[in-house]
């Protein structure tokens, strides 16, 4: 905590209720956790499918990649994989940042920058996959 370098002493005590009051609604508390599990479940079959696809695409030419993505099924699964992966990634990285960055301004900046990067990378992947497959 902020005064951890000083010799320990007690100058004030607050109850847990007093601490929590005024910090806003707790209603959205489980949403992050639940979204992380749902994307994880979706990514299990999608990742297995992607590993098979990646093996098929080793050493493939550009035309072969476009041909693979031109199937509506492949295109659908690839888009689902990209969206699921980046959503799961930003949820996970947010927890990592919040665990290790303690200064509030730095933490907020890092989380927002990370989310912006994830959105831009996801969009770049989606546009590229659509351009190849459509």
């Amino acid at each position: 905590m902020s005064d951890s370098h000083k010799a320990p002493h007690v100058d004030m005590l607050r109850s847990p209720l007093g601490r929590a009051r005024g910090l806003g609604s707790a209603r959205a508390g489980s949403h992050h956790w639940w979204a992380q599990r749902l994307t994880a479940i979706a990514l299990v079959p999608l990742t297995l499918w992607f590993i098979c696809g990646a093996i098929r695409m080793t050493g493939a030419s550009r035309a072969e990649v476009a041909d693979w993505l031109s199937s509506p099924l492949t295109l659908t699964l690839m888009l689902a994989l990209v969206i699921g992966t980046f959503h799961h990634l930003q949820l996970g990285l947010q927890i990592v940042i919040e665990d290790y960055v303690h200064k509030e301004s730095t933490r907020l900046t890092a989380v927002l920058a990370m989310k912006a990067a994830c959105i831009l990378l996801a969009l770049a992947c989606i546009i590229s996959v659509l351009r190849l497959g459509l």
Binding site: M1, D3, P8, V10, M12, L13, R14, S15, R19
Partner: peptide
């Protein structure tokens, strides 16, 4: 020490 979490960390 400002809150109860800190108080729990001393003995």
């Amino acid at each position: 020490m400002r809150d109860v979490r800190d108080a729990l960390m001393v003995a």
